[in-house]
Design a protein around this nucleic acid. Structure first.
Lengths: 255, 255
DNA sequence: CGACTCGTTGAGTGATATCAAACCCGGTGG
DNA sequence: CCACCGGGTTTGATATCACTCAACGAGTCG
């Protein structure tokens, strides 16, 4: 039944962005798609490659997108969680402008690109939901530009930790009181434009100041409010309230 | 006639992204819209404000989007030129997550939001063109993240100058051999996450090395190829080739 | 028990920021 | 015509945040 269909997760996700009717739901579930898995670190998309025949939707696990500069430095430009489309850009762009890699063991639904294009263009409500998804993604990119461009190391790291908290909570993959940090310190560094060493010191400092608590990779929030302030974090840019039109939503403490 | 219609520019722009038929064109030109002007520095959108009734399309002049951190630092997250949509996100998101400001004297076509939504959702080809526009914008955001996160000052500035060159050329607002730098050094600094002072020194250094030539704000490229290399610039991420499916496109020297 | 990955720590360095002043130039008003 | 003004640019001196290099430790796996 619906529960078991591989794309039922996509139905649920898009339902948070627009009100789907029965026809929309069945159309989504009828999309030609296959299940696929990737090991950690596996490359899923290569920069410069022509767009693949499939668009990927994350069922389980985490992935990230990155680019490498001429000098060999890597910058992670986004993190993706269950319920995210991994390569929305390939829906309509025909060449990959960055790499996509599995962060953990990853399970995806790979949806026929043309079929998805047609669906998006022919079903207004689904189209609207997908639009919102793409626009929210762009909003997150903007916030990352601000984070990397104008905040110091402490704020940058704090901000990223806050974003993870809210997004993992929303994706249903956080624990009750915190979450398992999904990346090692080198990857964190590449996400915020710092050095692994400096990430280490910054995390230590945040811990020492009683903002977070760490036990190996497991992270809890000793003082969410203060962390939010240090990280200059406001959840506005995540646009979590798009299903309901303009219901005032706070920067709610997820923990 | 079509030439004179305020939205003819939008028709032309979208035509570079998908093949519009006669029906599409007339539908676009029939959109309810008004012409409007802004003085330099004028705020067009305020962060946190509910989405306006209109979506803005740039007819003439330049604009930028920015966010301000808690500590008062400003980060410019994008620059917009004639032919760009200024607030694509407001098409489907109902709250502004950043500010939009006029950079020069700016002329816009302000299109009724609901009408544009309907058009995008009901006309597949227009929908496709708008999708491409949004996805390219996201691609530019990603490249900016990389630029700010992982390149040193020299490369960052060089990269931005290259991007301006290619985009202004494409928008038809560059001169034959260069362009008038559209921002002062403080704004450049806010765009690449540096200090005005350091921008100054970096520009001087690029000039001294014979990569660019400056005469007040007027910029010419003494050695485009070397500047490209220094800035680690490849035009791939601008996806200028989307009208024609996969025609190999180089990082062409615009000058 | 190596061998490996990841995290931690210390010492020294360097790129970029900060602060402050001078300069340049177009505009304006006496 | 000159004096002055203000925004933008340029320059110098100093400070600092984050980087680099290098080593060590803890946990894990074969």
């Amino acid at each position: 039944m619906l529960r078991d269909h591989i794309l039922s997760k996509m139905v649920r996700k898009l339902s948070t962005r627009a009100v789907l009717d029965e026809d929309d739901r069945t159309a989504i579930l009828a999309l030609p798609c296959i299940r696929r898995s990737y090991e950690p670190v596996a490359y899923i998309v290569h920069e410069g490659a022509p767009a693949r025949k499939h668009c990927m939707f994350v069922i389980e696990g985490l992935a990230y997108r990155q680019k490498v500069t001429a000098t060999g430095a890597r910058q992670i430009v986004s993190i993706h969680m269950p319920g995210d489309f991994l390569d929305l850009q390939h829906l309509f762009l025909n060449r990959a402008d960055h790499n996509v890699q599995a962060l953990t063991r990853l399970h995806t639904a790979e949806i026929d690109r043309e079929a998805l294009q047609d669906l998006v263009l022919s079903h207004p409500t689904i189209g609207r939901a997908m639009w919102i998804d793409a626009l929210v993604e762009a909003s997150i990119f903007r916030e990352w530009i601000v984070n990397i461009g104008r905040r110091d190391a402490r704020a940058r790291v704090a901000h990223l930790l806050c974003e993870f908290a809210v997004r993992m909570q929303a994706a249903g993959i956080a624990e009750a009181d915190g979450y398992v940090l999904p990346m090692n310190q080198e990857q964190l560094a590449d996400a915020v434009g710092l050095t692994p060493v400096h990430i280490n010191r910054t995390l230590k400092s945040l811990t020492a100041d009683g903002l977070i608590h760490r036990e190996k990779r497991y992270l809890t929030f000793s003082d969410w409010e203060r962390l939010r302030v240090v990280g200059d974090f406001s959840a506005l840019y995540l646009h979590l309230d798009q299903a309901t039109p303009l219901d005032d939503e706070a920067d709610g403490a997820p923990f």
